[in-house]
Amino acid sequence: MTKELTYLNFLKQERLPHQWCPGCGNGIILKLACMAMEKMNFQQKGTVMVSGIGCSGRSAGFFDLDSVHTAHGRALPVAEGIKLANEQLNVMVISGDGDLFGIGGNHLLHASRRNTDITVICISNAIYGMTGGQCSPTTEITSKTLTTPRGNEDSPINVQALVTAHNCFYARSTTFHFNHALKCIFEALQHKGFSFVEIKSQCITNDGRRRGFKNSYEMMMSYKETYKINNSTNKLEHNEIGIIK
């Protein structure tokens, strides 16, 4: 008999396959979130998933929980409203970098300041994937996108500084570092107060393809080469991944 992947019970499995492109990192992060929730022993009752807009915004709909798909950039205030109205609930946010740092940047600043007990998982793919591959707040400098054909002129946003400025939990990981990412989400869920997990993820269709990657696995391997795990620091370098509590 085929074994059952119990963590998949957090998903509405009848809705699979999801609508994301082949090789998209969102599916891996969906799985990571499920595994972390199972590890935390969360139940369907009492857990709420909130997401914003974009490719990652569609993820809330796949969870077999009460979930809210908010307006663009507004996942954080909605999550705060939920948590403050009912403190018993476990409130998680899954959203993208454009949603959280771009249009919703102001809310990130203030949600971390208020230190509400919510966990944010940011699928950071450095691109606006759903709209065709425009430059996003986390796009690396000199990186080529649809709207930066001569290479991005601006530096990416320093989320770590933004979140840790208010002494909140911040973790960075990638889809390649599967166990590390799981640990990050798990510790973020255990953390009381605002916790933020940024997971670098691959978008092959609208980003990698233009930057010369052949497939999404190559993009994941580039994370392996770029990022080194450093769990004993209070400031991560741009090529390090780890947890800051």
């Binding site: 699979l16 999801h18 082949p22 090789g23 998209c24 969102n26 599916g27 799985k31 889809t175």
Partner: peptide, 8 residues
């Protein structure tokens, strides 16, 4: 099994 993004 871990890296499959489609739970397939």
């Amino acid at each position: 099994e871990r890296y499959c993004p489609d739970m397939a």
